[in-house]
Simulated assay, not measured.
Amino acid sequence: MPRNPNKTDYSQGFPEGFETFATITDPRNGGNTRHHFGEILFMALAALLCGVRSYELMEEFCELREKWLRKWLKLPHGIPCANTFSRIFQSIDPAAFAGCIAEHLRQAGFEITAGQIAIDGKALRGSRSGELSHVHAVSAWACESGVTLAQAFVGDKSNEITAIPELLAMLNLKGMVVTLDAMGTQRAIAGQIVEGGGDYILCVKANQRRLHDELRDQFDFALRQLSDKKLDKERWSAARTDESGHDRSETRSILVCHDLSWMDQTVRGEWPGLASVVMVHRHTTLGGGKTRSETSYHISSLGETRAAEMLGYIRGHWGIENRCHWVLDAICREDHNQPRDRHAAANLSTLRRIALNAHNRMPQEGKKPKSLPKRELRAASDETYLEKLLSLM
């Protein structure tokens, strides 16, 4: 006999104000359904906001918080077991679920009209199984607000180049500066950003051989000819920063060429909106007197942006690594989470980013920002704080 003899519809059950996920189709079928789909997603997100890292702990968290959960949920058959959480996240379509990131921000009234968007990929290393490689996610990060705007997943037999256009199509690029590393330095991607009303700064490496050689030769020649006194302020701009800390000191020097009349027109014409080229040199002195030097080249559609601001964008790009990817690995233990099932790995990755967005958007009390573990602890112990994170108040 089926466990749902009355054929009750459990495919919805989203709490009021939590309709972000209502566009997701309940993947369950058959007569064994006993828990509302929307309620399971609500419980999973609440658990992640409180620092829960596994299906077993989701079940334990919900049992401990059952009285609070019943304020918002019906729970007709009590708390779902860990296997129920697992089956749900294995069955949801990852691409559709990833779309909930942007929808969640929209319903929360979050919008950016200017600033920098960094796009970068991240491997979900715990998802590797057998001959299948790990799932690879590409995310768009709003650098100023510290929020993931959208996410897309790379196909099994593809790479980031195919996922980035899909990701850009989810974003409002008008007035934004989009930064990408060398993998995203593609003519079609540059064109899509410009057509969307945005600007780009793209890192150039040997995967774009002709362009890389053109930039390297030009800057080598320019550095031999230019000095501070000879620098034509209309055609060139330069800046430098010096920083020390953590037993290391680093000097960053940037040179921007705003006049591209010297560039081979066949090369220049391949890149839509190209208006300036950039060289950044980093010299680092490490503990024990060891040194390290690195030079990188970039192209940009920003023609009037001077060197100091350009360096800010290039450095700001790494916020997605330091404030998002590192946090997901070191604190949320994303790489140590091993659901094995590729759909589950991708869907939990999306839910973690929604949870991190909620924490980063939450106004903090006091002068000193609280770390993510402290904010998770507060959510776990303070129901009012958790309700604010869930936008229930």
Rank of each mutant, 00 (worst) to 15 (best):
G13N: 11
T20V: 13
I24V: 03
D26I: 05
D26G: 03
D26C: 10
G30E: 02
T33K: 10
L41V: 12
L45D: 04
L49S: 01
L49K: 02
S54G: 04
S54L: 03
C62T: 08
K71Y: 09
W72A: 00
K74Q: 13
G78P: 04
I79D: 01
P80I: 13
N83V: 06
F85E: 07
I88V: 10
F89N: 00
S91W: 06
I92Y: 01
P94L: 07
P94F: 15
F97D: 04
H104G: 01
R106F: 09
Q107E: 15
G121V: 15
L124K: 00
V138S: 04
A140D: 12
W141P: 06
S145M: 15
V147K: 10
Q151G: 09
V177T: 14
G184K: 09
I193C: 00
Y200I: 00
L215W: 08
L223D: 13
K229P: 02
K233Y: 02
K233G: 10
R235M: 08
S237D: 08
R252Y: 09
I254E: 09
H258N: 02
M263Q: 02
R268H: 10
P272S: 07
S276P: 08
S276A: 14
M279Y: 03
H281M: 07
H283S: 12
G287V: 02
G289N: 11
S296D: 10
H298P: 07
H298L: 12
I299C: 04
E304F: 08
E309V: 11
L311H: 05
G312V: 04
W318M: 05
I320M: 02
E321S: 01
R323H: 12
C324R: 01
L328T: 05
A330N: 05
Q338F: 03
L356W: 03
P363A: 12
K370T: 15
L372H: 01
P373M: 01
R378G: 07
A380E: 06
L389A: 10
S391M: 12
L392A: 06
